[in-house]
């Protein structure tokens, strides 16, 4: 993998050397390079070189799962109110970097007009999910009528560590639409960013790192889906798999087979034609929650 040099400076900027950003992984709240030392060039929609992103290996995936597992107890044990506050905070931080995100999304998609509305929709989506944090259990939990002197209560609880392949086309809105519903209930995630458009995802992790989100709740890998995803799908310490961004039907089938080994919850790929801007529903949250039903004697 040979790192490419960016194009020569244009005349008006020549006076000052460019300070270029290094796009790294996000694991356990830190920003490491890939342990493999590899990187790959990321190009804009028009084919121009933009940056070198880290090319994550299976060992980065392993480290990310370990970080996600160790963050799970604290994040799932936080109160729903507290998780909601942190998600609101993420939206606030995103708002502050709105212009930067619009630039990066526009460069990735080549569509400067819709970039602003995509970023706005992504911010609004964090807020929407943040609001669900302390409501999902009361709306979807239940006090069940049973034929006996018992209270019978069902409450949804987080599944555990969720591995996500982020949507390939929608670099920010699509990513937010799969990560937010997974972490709202208290899951921790390892997400593989869009292979072709990873830069907005890396910038999003800088927002996450400064929003009081505990390290390890969200871990981001950039690189080849076909290389990393099989290790996540077969990992015995991953509890659920979201294949939203997998484009290769054969690979999706293989991943689902590997996931069956420890009975992972699996969400199948989302068709490329689907519109991430459409209003979300609660289904993505509920998929990554397990219903716990408790019986308790009544009266006496």
């Amino acid at each position: 993998m040979i790192a490419e040099e960016p194009p020569a400076e244009t005349a008006e900027h020549a006076a000052r050397l460019a300070i270029r950003k290094t796009y790294k992984l996000f694991i356990g709240g830190a920003f490491p390079r890939s342990e493999s030392g590899r990187s790959y060039p990321v190009r804009s929609a028009s084919g121009d070189f933009m940056a070198n992103a880290a090319l994550a290996s299976r060992k980065d995936a392993r480290d990310a799962v370990r970080a996600a597992r160790s963050a799970f107890a604290k994040w799932s044990g936080a109160t729903a109110y507290n998780r909601g506050q942190i998600l609101y905070r993420i939206a606030e931080m995103l708002e502050g970097r709105r212009a930067q995100f619009i630039d990066e999304v526009a460069a990735a998609s080549g569509d400067g007009v819709s970039a602003a509305s995509e970023v706005d929709a992504a911010i609004d989506r964090w807020v929407w999910y943040a609001g669900w944090s302390d409501k999902i259990a009361q709306v979807h939990g239940a006090a069940n009528p049973v034929a006996g002197p018992y209270f019978n209560l069902s409450t949804p609880e987080p599944t555990g560590v969720v591995a996500i392949v982020a949507p390939a086309e929608s670099s920010l809105l699509g990513l937010v639409s799969v990560v937010a519903p997974a972490i709202v209930p208290g899951n921790t995630v390892v997400v593989v960013a869009s292979e072709e458009r990873p830069l907005p995802a890396v910038t999003l992790t800088e927002v996450l790192a400064t929003s009081d989100l505990p390290g390890g709740v969200v871990n981001l890998l950039t690189g080849r889906v076909a290389e990393i995803a099989p290790w996540l799908a077969s990992h015995m310490d991953v509890d659920a798999l979201d294949l939203a961004g997998v484009r290769d039907a054969g690979l999706a089938t293989d991943l689902e087979i590997a996931a069956a080994e420890n009975l992972k919850r699996v969400l199948r790929p989302v068709p490329a034609s689907s519109d991430w801007a459409a209003d979300p529903d609660v289904q993505r949250m509920l998929t990554f929650m397990e219903m716990k039903t408790a019986w308790h004697p009544k009266g006496i």
Binding site: S234, M236, D237
Partner: peptide, 9 residues
């Protein structure tokens, strides 16, 4: 086995 194990096992 060729796959990562976890502390549950």
């Amino acid at each position: 086995t060729g796959r990562y194990s976890g502390p549950n096992y």
